[in-house]
Amino acid sequence: MIGANVEAVAAPQELPSRDRGRVVRALLADPLSVVGLVLITLLVVAAALGPWIAPFPDQGAGQTNIGEALLPPGGEHLLGTDRLGRDMLSRIILGARPALLVSLLVVGLAVLIGAPLGAIAGYRGGRLDEAIMRLTDLFLAFPPLLLAMAIIAALGPGLERAALALAISWWPWYARITRGVAASLRERPFVDAARSIGVPERTIVRRHILPNAISPILVQATVDIGTVILAAGSLAFIGLGARPPAPDWGLMVSEGRTFILDQWWYSGFPGLAIFLSVLGFNLVGDTLRDIFDPRQVRR
């Protein structure tokens, strides 16, 4: 009997569909987030269908074509070619998938580490809470990216290690968000009731705490996917990420740097791809944040 009641009270775990409708309407009502949605869609399409929609998929993947090196935009090569004669457009389209995947991986890892830690901290409170939160303080005491750089130095360079380093320096944000939600739910009747009838802590955290943290985590993750694309691009630019001949946007900007004054498109277009991808997520994230928590502005 009590158990049934607990389930009933605990029901609002996700956004009710009415609210989901409200979110979608709000996203579509704001011209900026519509632009953002369009940009994200473009990125996802390029990531999913890259090899099929790129005009020169082989060149995109790395096949060289020295005879047509450094052609300006126009004609057959809409965005020009790079120093090895590869079609820039194809390279950029094929770069979408790794960019998006790395970013999803980093944010996913950060959520996987951060959310459970935050949930436990907020739910248990006391010493454990204090310890976990002080740990996040330490991680957040480093300027963004600097900690990731130091970790890369310890692990050695490379795309996977860069991703791991980014995730390690990113999880505290999610721990904090989830902790806030968990701490506010701890004393709520349905959690109290669940606890009093002996529902194990793991179950309470999994069924009552984490689901309620989903909205704030998603809002943050939306912005972060963009931010991580930017961070990974930056690391690649200084040579700490992907290695040639990978079609990596940051790497391409870096390669084109030597030619920037005369062949501006070489660095210009891959950089634009990074910019527009990040912009897309930030535009949508900004509107989402307005909907969920208009007073919070962070990062």
Binding site: G226, L230, G233, S234, F237, G250, V253, S254, S267, G268, G271, L272, I274, F275, V278, L279, N282
Partner: peptide
């Protein structure tokens, strides 16, 4: 501004 890669 916050989406712009500084190096670019």
């Amino acid at each position: 501004g916050v989406s712009m890669p500084a190096f670019w």
